[in-house]
Design a protein around this nucleic acid. Structure first.
Length: 581
DNA sequence: GAGTTTGAAACT
DNA sequence: CAGTTTCAAACTC
């Protein structure tokens, strides 16, 4: 664009804004890499973003690692593949949290594409090169992504912890201009209204740019185009001219045709997406329905050979999957695949690596198992405690028949349960009251919302259904003991089982992923087409399964839940569990 | 690496 | 809201 003819430089104004207070020593490499929030807390304090533990676990692999959940980094990377994570995510104040999602993973701009090495290995996110915006405007990708500049090449950067004040102002100003400024540009919300999702009927739902692009000269086939950059097709939201970024565009297909180079990279991305999808995308997922896509756009694949395409497709499919109502973990095998197939010639229809591993009823079963565990463990613990209480009482009576000290708190250490850990607010049983104790992060809220999903309610309502535990406050233990006292231990047990379950799941996913990888390697040299729904040869019959997963490797408690969980629907997992207990 | 092109963001 | 300017990334050489 031509520079302005007038001598009016808004920048000047901008430069003279509050933040001029401090001219940065802009050694980018030395910029602090920290997390902080926008709350304007003391910068130093901003280091400790107080997320609920759960949220932390979700966000930060190292937290998982250091916790009981000794899930390998590898697997956690699979869960959260997006490179932005490696940079420092800024959190908005709670009031603003909905505006700037904790994990702006969807933001598609260059970061997504440029932050990956050619082999698909996520590398350090792109560093901005801002010169005039102080990295406090949306021009700056870091700022726009809600992350601090870290090791960028920017000049006079204020997008760092030292300039928290000006930064906050900038955020506010930006939000004032556009309350959605920090939201993902690509429409996607795991909690997008189901109605909307269903609006599409059985039609496919594709992600689209919320605002749409306005390209004029690039044909939407260059990275100037935000849609293209995000690997999505232009939609009716776009106001672009001469758009070639639609499904059947010859130019587009020509652009992508025949590039196998990054197959593995995209396969990996697919795996990541799959795992994320299977485990439950809390930060991103289903896009709003796209009812009236521009011409073509019904996703017909023909993208087999092009990685870029495939990535787009992966993303799209991933999101589509997320939008398919009740099957939270479903890999959507049959109907969808066939549906997709009906749309055209053999296509790449990405299928979760966990397909065939996790089935809906498995989830239900898992829920049942957890319930059973919970109940049994509660009983067990309460009995145990009761017994020891009696014993202690008896002992004390014997020792101090008439002592006033005999008033023993129920939290007696002799129970083996730490008194402190027992002091759990009763209200916690009621989930909703947890917030009274500490703020709930958007992520946690999202998770809580998820729990209202059908999978947890209607669909999964076995005899010992979740609701009976979670909603039934009257779930009482023998001898009038409330859950309160047992809860921590109970929780520990249940979580341990869940962890083991997930470990196995991860292992199975990895094994399957490896299998796919090797198959792709094999087929990539020999064949050109026919990639099946699992990312493997379509017409070629699936190769013999690799040796059964070395499940022993998965350090697990070897519990019934383990056995029942990831395996393909064991006949009667619940009974096994009960028996084991 | 410098210069150009491009389109989003910011501004009027 | 439309037009213009600013900006930084993408692209080209």
């Amino acid at each position: 664009m031509e520079k302005s003819e007038g001598g009016h430089f808004p920048t000047k104004k901008a430069e003279s804004e509050p933040a001029r207070v401090q001219v940065e020593t802009d050694n980018p490499a030395k910029k602090l890499a920290r997390q902080l929030d926008f709350t304007g807390g003391v910068p130093g304090q901003a280091l400790t973003v107080s997320l609920p533990e759960h949220a932390n676990q979700i966000i930060q692999p190292e937290v998982i690692k250091s916790s009981q959940l000794t899930v390998s980094m590898k697997s956690t990377q699979l869960i959260r593949p997006q490179p932005q994570l490696q940079q420092h995510i800024l959190l908005m104040p709670m009031q603003q949290a909905p505006v700037l999602p904790p994990l702006p993973l969807i933001r598609p701009l260059s970061r997504q594409s440029s932050s990956e090495a050619k082999d698909g290995t996520p590398k350090k996110p792109k560093q901005c090169n801002c010169k005039h915006s102080r990295c406090l405007k949306l021009y700056c990708e870091c700022f726009a992504s809600g992350i601090f500049c870290d090791g960028c090449n920017c000049a006079n950067c204020h997008n760092n912890v030292e300039n928290e004040a000006s930064r906050r102002e900038a955020v506010e100003a930006t939000l004032e201009r556009n309350p959605n400024a920090f939201r993902p540009k690509i429409a996607s919300s795991p909690h997008g209204t189901r109605e909307k999702r269903e609006e599409a009927g059985d039609g496919l739902v594709l992600p689209k740019h919320n605002k749409g692009c306005h390209c004029k000269k690039s044909g939407c086939l260059k990275k100037y185009c935000e849609c293209f950059q995000a690997n999505i097709l232009c939609s009716e939201n776009c106001k672009c001219m001469d758009c070639k970024n639609f499904e059947k565009s010859e130019e587009r297909q020509a652009l992508f045709h025949g590039d196998h180079a990054n197959n593995m990279a995209y396969l990996q991305q697919a795996a990541n997406a799959a795992i994320t999808d299977a485990i439950g995308s809390s930060g991103y997922g289903s896009p709003p329905v796209n009812k009236n896509r521009k011409p073509q756009e019904l996703f017909s694949g023909s993208m087999i050979k092009d990685p870029v395409h495939t990535l787009g497709q992966f993303q799209q499919e991933n999101q589509i999957k997320a939008s398919v109502p009740p099957s939270l973990l479903s890999s959507i095998p049959g109907p969808r695949v066939s549906n997709a197939a009906a749309l055209g010639p053999p296509k790449v229809t990405y299928r979760s690596l966990l397909a065939d591993i996790i089935q809906n009823h498995d989830i239900k079963e898992l829920c049942s198992v957890l319930i059973v565990y919970a109940q049994e463990a509660a009983k067990m613990l309460s009995d145990e405690k009761d017994a020891s209480l009696k014993q202690a009482k008896h002992h004390r009576k014997a020792s101090y028949p008439s002592s006033g000290v005999e008033k023993v708190m129920p939290d007696d250490c002799s129970t083996g349960i730490q008194a402190e850990s027992i002091r759990v607010d009763e209200s916690r049983l009621d989930g909703a009251d947890v917030s009274a104790e500490r703020p709930i992060s958007p992520g946690t809220l999202a998770l809580m919302c998820d729990e209202q999903d059908t999978i947890f309610t209607a669909a999964a309502a076995p005899p010992n259904d979740l609701t009976s535990l979670s909603n039934n406050k009257s779930f009482q233990l023998p001898h009038g003991q409330g859950m309160t006292e047992i809860y921590p231990e109970l929780e520990r047990i249940v979580l341990a089982q869940t962890r083991d379950c997930l470990k196995k799941l991860i292992t199975l996913g990895e094994i399957k992923g490896k299998k796919c990888s090797s198959m792709v390697r094999d087929t990539d040299s020999g064949r050109q087409n026919n990639v099946s729904s699992n990312g493997v040869a379509n017409t070629v019959p699936p190769p013999p399964s690799p040796p059964p997963p070395p499940q022993q490797k998965v350090d697990s408690g070897t519990t019934a839940a383990n056995n029942a969980c990831p395996k393909v629907h064991p006949p009667d997992g619940n009974r096994d569990v009960k028996e084991k207990i």
